[in-house]
Design a binder for these strands. Structure first.
Length: 512
RNA sequence: GGUGGGUUCGUAUAACGGCUAGUACUCAAGAUUUUCAUUCUUGCAAUAGGAGUUCGAUUCUCCUACCCACUACCA
């Protein structure tokens, strides 16, 4: 009998979730949905020192914006569930609120001889590290050193009992075996083997704050929450042997593992970091983030990206369908996704491609939907216009935009008369040759502004019939209508703003 | 330093061990257009290096180089 697929995204609320984290969540989500299983959110806040207020809410909101909705762990209002219910049987989903359950598992490991109590102070361990460093070596708390350190393996039983009772800065450490090769399998990377002699005795539980470290909490909760596949970032690969050993020590069936490649910065080397975005002018976060210190980082949402485009772009960063299809709805992603086709190497994020995706999605949207979005932008610029008019405008300028905001920057003149003119273009097109033509056109347009608004005067034919130089006159007219010699077709502009307004603008330019 | 992972055009990627190494983004050129943009066409551009296995290697093995991650009482 096969178990129901259950995967989890387990972020640590130490700051905003960056796009790499979103991708990890997305892959988990796609996998779960494809298998008809559950996608669970668990908050791994076992480090009280690094807790950042607002981060947890940010993470949930960011996922929600992307359309990544958890089945379990977060309620309909976007709050992390604290009380168990049928839908959320494993509550609470915040590890800090589960602290009571980890200690017994740590004790169980000690009883079984898989772990031990360590009483070394952080100061003494720091001193060990410094001493080793001075000799050009690295201090490792493991089979080589644990025998001379202060722990339940070296201290008398009574002393251990006393310290356990009377002191509060001790920890439980995993007793990493010294001579074993752990054979592991990764869905993406295949077979991996590691010699435990090179590994250290990781801290599993801290008496000081009565909290587990990531490793223990992770394994215990994944087991308790019946997780079937662990899909996480590549940075966890080095601790996979420990996790294998932990499952073994508990005697639990372990989930399958898949370690995702990292997201790299667009230029140079190294993983994508918060600073790259600020430096190179693209967001690394899904949503804008204002740190408790007041520092602001931009977000894809606020930069005008559609969540579908952002998700689509992210999905293809490290995964491909094996076909040449590039545009995928969430439903199509769920259908096509497979961990086997996830790449092994880190992916450099390309901001240009992200824009391309947004442009594609913008074009797929209906004029009506876009008009609704554009109206908000217009309002922000202090402009209001009838919805029918905005929709017509959108239809005309859709192809020149990547973001909704571009509708405005590409053609503000469809709503407001140009307040100034590009001097270079004025010098080039407002010449003794074109001026009389403009004067004539202004009058001609006025004569067409009256009773029949349905038909737009054919200005091109008019210019041709008069035998004027087409390019020069048309550009002079465009200059009058838009403020510069580049932009939409004259006829299109005319059909939108009307002959009367066009005539007015031409007169204005002539008096300029 | 140690351990692990990785390496196909600038970027993302495709290629049962078998066509001239394909596609998309970017870039360049041309066509179309009253301008700009769009659109269309064309082009530039890659298997990190070296051995080995094989009739044949981008693909499998080994070595080297480079890149990345981890090496905390952080996740």
């Amino acid at each position: 009998m096969t178990r129901r697929t259950r995967v989890r995204f387990a972020p640590s609320p130490t700051g905003p979730l960056h796009m790499g984290g979103v991708r990890t969540a997305l892959y988990n989500y796609l996998y779960a949905k494809q298998k008809g299983g559950d996608f669970i959110i668990r908050i791994e806040d076992t480090d009280s020192h690094r807790f950042v207020p607002g981060a947890e809410q940010y993470i949930i909101e960011a996922l929600r914006w992307c359309g990544i909705i958890p089945d379990e762990g977060v309620d309909a209002e976007g709050h992390v569930v604290e009380e168990a219910s049928e839908r959320h049987p494993h509550a609470p989903y915040r590890q800090s609120q589960r602290r009571g359950i980890y200690r017994k598992y740590a004790e169980q490991l000690v009883q079984g001889g898989f772990a031990y109590y360590a009483f070394d102070s952080s100061e003494s361990l720091d001193a060990e590290r410094k001493a080793a460093e001075a000799k050009g070596q690295t201090f490792i708390y493991n089979w080589q050193t644990r025998g001379r350190l202060r722990n339940s393996l070296t201290l008398p039983v009574e002393e251990v009992a006393r310290l356990l009772e009377e002191t509060t800065d001790w920890t439980v450490r995993f007793k990493m075996p010294e001579g074993r090769v752990v054979e592991m399998d990764d869905i993406i990377r295949g077979h991996i083997s590691v010699d435990t002699a090179t590994l250290d005795d990781k801290v599993l539980w801290k008496r000081a704050d009565e909290l587990p470290t990531y490793h223990l909490a992770n394994i215990v909760d994944d087991h308790l929450m019946e997780i079937t596949e662990v899909i996480r970032g590549e940075e966890w690969l080095p601790s996979l042997p420990l996790h294998y050993l932990l499952y073994e020590a508990f005697g639990w069936e372990r989930p399958a593992f898949a370690h995702l490649p990292l997201l790299l910065k667009p230029v140079g080397n190294g993983k994508l970091s918060k600073r790259d975005g600020d430096k190179m002018g693209f967001p690394v976060f899904p949503l804008r983030w204002v740190s408790p210190e007041g520092e602001t980082s931009r977000g894809y949402r606020e930069d005008g990206y559609f969540p579908e485009a952002f998700v689509n772009m992210l999905a293809l960063l490290g995964w491909n369908p094996g076909t040449e299809q590039e545009i995928f709805s969430m439903a199509e992603l769920i259908e096509a996704f497979s961990l086997e086709k996830v790449g092994k190497s880190g992916a450099k994020f390309n901001p240009e491609k992200a824009k391309w995706f947004n442009r594609e999605y913008l074009r797929m949207k209906s004029d009506a939907e876009l008009a609704g979005l554009y109206s908000e932008v217009l309002a922000a610029h202090g402009v209001s216009a009838p919805p029918e008019y905005v929709e017509k405008v959108v239809g005309v300028i859709k192809d020149r935009a990547t973001f909704v905001e571009d509708f405005w920057t590409a053609a503000p003149y469809l709503f407001v008369a140009p307040s100034g003119f590009v001097e270079k273009d004025v010098a080039k097109f407002l010449t003794p040759e074109t001026t009389p033509c403009l004067t004539e056109v202004a009058d001609w347009l006025n004569s067409h502004s009256g009773p029949h608004p349905e038909s737009t005067p054919d200005i091109e034919s008019h210019v041709r019939d008069n035998g004027w130089p087409m390019g020069k006159v048309m550009n002079a007219i465009r200059l009058a209508l838009t403020g510069s010699a580049s932009g939409l077709g004259i006829h299109e502009i005319l059909s939108l703003i009307g002959p009367a307004e066009a005539s007015r603008r031409i007169s204005y330019l002539l008096n300029h």
